[in-house]
């Protein structure tokens, strides 16, 4: 187990370095830059801009800039925002809560619905429900998140006036139900794709399991169909889902980016998009690295969970 952890940790560090290099390079190769913000209105002379570039260290060679940024990052100094001079880490943490809230809610919806739909589809294979779920999943996977978000807002906020069209809560009213009310729209939009994915994987995993010999054994010893499903089949069918959860994490993160923008949700996704349009490089790099860490940790956690859940792995040493 320790070897495994150590190896995974080493891989994670290498991956993070690669991600940071690619991110940093692409960002600085893109046309425009932090200074273009100041250049547009013409109030600054070229000399002013040069001085600013010098102050921010933007005129140095790229590898030097990267090296300095990287070393500081390791020491916990993720830089300050060009926009409001706040430390990057502070900004990220102030947006983290909103994103986690949204992602967790969406995940719970996706897992519960996906497992349920997938299981039912598997045990009633080729039934009307199964066909409906199959078509539904295809449709859900084909709908772009931003479009679905807009439709939800158009129908439920503008048309029916059931849901708020954005934000995390009404200013001045931070009550629990007000927050829940705001959460409904974006979390359903974010959960849509994941639900489709989960239901498909769950269906095939369940189909696999219910044809196994040990299910026949359980049936032969007189276990009820209900108990076979919940005690014998479900645990086995859910095992591969743990890995799927890890793999789905980046999908969920990128989904959150779009959803948060559509619903003006004050989370990391919106922060990321805003920071890109402001050319706020330190924050963009910060969010990028933070997301990468979350994805890697999530997958590591999934693997660890798997070895706990599957006796065949944890006991073999």
């Amino acid at each position: 187990m320790a070897t495994f952890l150590l190896r995974r940790f080493g891989q994670a560090v290498i991956l993070l370095i690669v991600v940071s290099m690619i991110g940093f390079t692409i960002l600085h190769l893109a046309p425009g830059g932090p200074l273009s913000q100041y250049a547009v209105d013409g109030s600054m002379t070229q000399a002013d801009l040069d001085r600013l570039a010098d102050q921010l260290g933007l005129n140095r060679p790229l590898p030097v800039q990267y090296g300095e940024w990287f070393l500081r990052m390791l020491q916990g100094d993720w830089g300050v925002s060009y926009r409001d001079r706040q430390p990057v880490l502070d900004i990220i943490f102030s947006h983290l809560g909103a994103t986690l809230e949204l992602m967790l809610t969406a995940t719970v919806i996706a897992v519960v619905l996906g497992v349920w739909i997938g299981t039912l589809g598997a045990i009633r294979r080729y039934s009307f429900f199964d066909s409906l779920a199959t078509v539904g999943a295809m449709v859900a996977l084909s709908i772009p998140t931003f479009w679905f978000g807009l439709i939800v807002i158009y129908v439920f906020s503008v048309g029916l006036d059931w849901l708020p069209s954005g934000n995390r809560y009404t200013i001045g009213d931070g009550s629990f139900w007000n927050r829940v009310h705001h959460l409904v729209g974006p979390s359903i939009v974010l959960a849509l794709v994941s639900t489709a994915v989960w239901s498909r994987y769950m269906r095939s995993s369940m189909l696999d399991v219910i044809n196994q010999d040990y299910i026949r054994t359980a049936r032969a010893k007189g276990v009820s169909e209900r108990r076979i499903l919940f005690r014998h089949a479900m645990r086995n069918a859910l095992l591969p889902m743990i890995t799927i959860a890890g793999v789905q994490l980046p999908v969920l993160l990128s989904g959150a980016l779009v959803t948060e923008t559509v619903f003006t949700w004050p989370g990391m996704g919106r922060l990321f998009l805003d920071s890109i349009s402001y050319r706020d490089y330190p924050v963009v790099m910060g969010v990028l690295m933070f997301s990468a860490v979350i994805v890697l940790l999530g997958n590591l956690l999934a693997d660890l969970l798997y070895s706990v859940a599957d006796p065949r792995i944890s006991r073999q040493s």
């Binding site: 040990y214 359980a218 014998h232 086995n236 006796p311 065949r312």
Partner: peptide, 8 residues
């Protein structure tokens, strides 16, 4: 080999 439930 396959007739027993692996997680029980």
């Amino acid at each position: 080999m396959t007739s027993l439930n692996p997680v029980m």
